[in-house]
Deep mutational scan, measured.
Amino acid sequence: KGCNCRRSGCLKNYCECYEAQIMCSSICKCIGCKNY
Rank of each mutant, 00 (worst) to 15 (best):
residue 1 K to C: 00
residue 1 K to S: 04
residue 2 G to K: 02
residue 2 G to C: 03
residue 3 C to K: 09
residue 3 C to S: 01
residue 3 C to H: 04
residue 4 N to W: 05
residue 4 N to P: 11
residue 4 N to V: 00
residue 4 N to G: 09
residue 5 C to I: 00
residue 5 C to S: 05
residue 6 R to F: 08
residue 6 R to S: 15
residue 6 R to L: 14
residue 7 R to Y: 12
residue 8 S to V: 08
residue 8 S to E: 10
residue 8 S to Q: 10
residue 8 S to A: 08
residue 8 S to N: 04
residue 8 S to K: 09
residue 9 G to V: 05
residue 9 G to D: 13
residue 9 G to K: 00
residue 9 G to P: 07
residue 10 C to F: 11
residue 10 C to K: 05
residue 11 L to F: 13
residue 11 L to S: 08
residue 11 L to W: 04
residue 11 L to C: 02
residue 11 L to K: 11
residue 12 K to E: 12
residue 12 K to R: 04
residue 12 K to H: 07
residue 13 N to A: 10
residue 13 N to V: 01
residue 13 N to F: 01
residue 13 N to K: 10
residue 13 N to I: 04
residue 14 Y to Q: 12
residue 14 Y to L: 11
residue 15 C to W: 00
residue 15 C to D: 11
residue 15 C to Y: 01
residue 16 E to N: 00
residue 17 C to N: 02
residue 17 C to V: 03
residue 17 C to P: 05
residue 17 C to S: 04
residue 18 Y to W: 11
residue 18 Y to Q: 13
residue 19 E to C: 09
residue 19 E to P: 06
residue 19 E to T: 05
residue 20 A to H: 00
residue 20 A to L: 07
residue 20 A to E: 09
residue 21 Q to V: 03
residue 21 Q to L: 06
residue 21 Q to M: 02
residue 22 I to K: 09
residue 22 I to W: 04
residue 23 M to T: 03
residue 23 M to W: 06
residue 23 M to G: 14
residue 24 C to M: 04
residue 24 C to T: 06
residue 24 C to Q: 10
residue 25 S to C: 04
residue 25 S to L: 03
residue 25 S to E: 05
residue 26 S to K: 12
residue 26 S to D: 09
residue 27 I to N: 12
residue 27 I to Y: 03
residue 27 I to Q: 14
residue 27 I to E: 14
residue 27 I to D: 13
residue 28 C to M: 04
residue 28 C to F: 10
residue 28 C to N: 05
residue 28 C to T: 08
residue 29 K to N: 13
residue 29 K to T: 12
residue 30 C to T: 03
residue 30 C to P: 07
residue 30 C to W: 02
residue 31 I to F: 08
residue 31 I to N: 13
residue 31 I to V: 14
residue 32 G to V: 03
residue 33 C to Q: 04
residue 33 C to V: 10
residue 33 C to A: 11
residue 34 K to V: 14
residue 34 K to L: 13
residue 34 K to D: 15
residue 35 N to G: 14
residue 35 N to H: 00
residue 35 N to E: 13
residue 35 N to L: 00
